[in-house]
């Protein structure tokens, strides 16, 4: 192997370039813009037909971007997200409103599935 190829001026920039390439490949594969999660009540029971709001961050403000409703299992799904910093909030009639959950992503439109459900403060009757 030629000596110049082993020089740190070649090896280090090459390593950085390869890392950047690998990261960009990962981003391309995982930037679908989907946000999935679940809404439960105070007892942990899934809440169907709850309203879920997706807010996206613009510097210091969060603006409402989309709304959807949960299915029978309490799951909700958003698509077309192109932001990297989101807030999610759920609300259901008679069950109150959940805390506003901040979801920070590693890149724009990263596919994300909430590990913790949005919890409404009141139990389902």
């Amino acid at each position: 192997m030629p000596a110049w190829l082993k020089s740190r001026w070649v090896v280090v920039p090459l390593a950085i370039a390869l890392t950047a390439l690998a990261w960009n490949a990962y981003v391309v594969v995982n930037a679908g813009g989907t946000v999935d999660g679940r809404v439960v009540d105070a007892a942990g029971q899934p809440v169907p037909d709850a309203s879920v709001i997706l807010l996206e961050r613009h510097f210091v403000m969060h603006n409402e971007r989309q709304r959807t409703r949960t299915d029978d299992g309490g799951y909700f799904h958003f698509s077309g997200n192109d932001n990297h910093s989101l807030q999610l909030e759920a609300e259901a009639t008679g069950l109150g409103r959940s805390e506003r959950r901040v979801v920070r992503l590693w890149f724009r439109a990263q596919n994300v599935r909430l590990t913790e459900p949005l919890r409404l403060p009141i139990r389902l009757p």
């Binding site: 990297h84 910093s85 920070r104 992503l105 590693w106 890149f107 724009r108």
Partner: peptide
């Protein structure tokens, strides 16, 4: 995530 904010 602050670094991500700066990037965008």
């Amino acid at each position: 995530f602050n670094f991500v904010d700066v990037w965008y």
